[in-house]
Design a protein around this nucleic acid. Structure first.
Length: 369
DNA sequence: AATGCGTGGGG
DNA sequence: TCCCCAAGCAT
């Protein structure tokens, strides 16, 4: 049946990673030691620090992670400090990194470990695998980098590297190619220096074997690479077309009352759980934002209030492009009908907000109405 | 198995 | 302005 079909390869490319052993590791490990970029998490052997970096690096670029990593390690230098931290203090440090669920999972994992008597990440695959937010990649990254265990990793960089090396002619991010790549990485990971080897695959993908215009001329494993030898490096990996972007219109309200602003906290189980945002709601594309905003305001405060200013703020969430029509108003009187809390201005810097709403807040600070 | 989850930088 | 991409995980 179709979903169990083996992956496809370029002509003359046997799906046999054994042909690369042991040359791959013998070339890549010394190459990595020579050219590795100096990231802060690479200066540490602490399993906790390596774990924190791996969680932050999930779907996030190294340049973005660096300052966040420094700040979190300074505030919570070890597992026990993190486990003792409040949800909001950790989320506040995470603010702007996105994928906030991984932050909550990381904090939950720290608390579970400390409650079970651990003072650091354990050298134990089963315990690690049981933790929230700990998938195959992150678990093996910690095991190989922190504990020198010979286990493989597969992620965006190594998928691309292995796909080109092996002449894989399918989208490596989708099964069954993805499953095959795990088998491939398992066959290639060396008994010794697995951590360096795994990082070498990622370093190669991040600096040489780039998504477009790979620098094959300086690649240390070019002689082993099927895609390079066949001149196909720029057409591998195959990519599945992405879903179209959907445009969304919404109205948001920045309501001020006695130097307080009305904010809502995203509820448990919802997107951006725990983050604070200005009240907002989606509207129909063809409706008038000002009328929607006035109706929305009537649902929140008991009496209609004049709008002082209006502005537009755009952001994107995955496959959505969101435009928030923001209306600002001073609330003089009227009971609060809907959910929300009036937050004093001086406390807003400490609350975790989503990046778009933090930008709105910064904008309001610069141009007070 | 396919989707949802954020954000910022670069071409 | 748009599209692509990034050290994944959960459901």
């Amino acid at each position: 049946m179709a979903r169990q079909d083996p992956p496809h390869f370029l002509p003359g490319c046997p799906p046999d990673p054994a042909r690369l052993n042991p040359a791959m590791a013998e070339v890549l490990v010394p190459w990595f030691r020579a050219v590795a970029r100096d990231f802060p998490w690479r200066r540490s052997q602490d399993p906790y620090a390596i774990w924190v970096s791996e969680v932050m690096l999930q779907q996030t670029t190294t340049a973005t992670v660096i300052p966040y990593f420094h700040r979190l390690m300074q505030a919570f230098p070890n597992l026990e400090a993190l486990a003792a931290a409040s949800d909001e203090s950790v989320l506040r440090l995470w603010e702007g990194l996105g994928y906030y669920r991984r932050c909550r999972a990381m904090l939950a994992a720290a608390r579970l470990l400390v409650a079970a008597g651990h003072s650091n990440l354990p050298d134990n695959p089963e315990i690690l695998a049981s933790l929230p937010g700990m998938g195959d990649y992150t678990r093996n990254a910690v095991l190989s980098q922190a504990f020198d265990r010979s286990v493989p990793i597969v992620e965006a960089n190594s998928r691309r590297v292995l796909a080109r090396l092996m002449g894989l002619n399918d989208d490596p991010a989708r099964p069954p190619a993805s499953k095959w790549l795990w088998e491939c990485a398992t066959a290639l990971v060396p008994e010794n220096n697995a951590g360096a080897f795994n990082q070498a695959l990622m370093e190669l993908g991040g600096t040489v074997c780039l998504p477009s215009q790979p620098a094959c001329l300086v690649c240390p494993v070019r002689p082993m690479c099927q895609a390079a030898q066949q001149g196909e490096a720029d057409r591998i990996p195959h990519k599945t077309p992405r879903p179209a972007i959907t445009k969304v219109e919404s109205v948001g309200l920045a309501l001020r009352h006695n130097n307080c602003w009305l904010l809502r906290q995203c509820p448990a189980g919802a997107r951006r759980e725990g983050l604070w945002e200005f009240p907002h709601e989606q509207i129909d594309d063809d409706s008038k934002p000002i009328q929607c905003a006035e109706a929305f305001m009537r649902a929140i405060v008991a009496e209609q209030q004049p709008v002082l200013s209006a502005g537009s703020h755009d952001h994107s969430i995955t496959r959505y492009r969101v435009r928030i029509h923001l209306f600002t108003a001073d609330i003089k009187k009227g009971a609060l009908l809907g959910e929300g809390r009036w937050i004093p201005e001086v406390e807003m810097a400490e609350l975790p907000m989503s990046a778009p709403h933090r930008r709105i807040w910064n904008h309001l600070q610069q141009a007070p109405s």
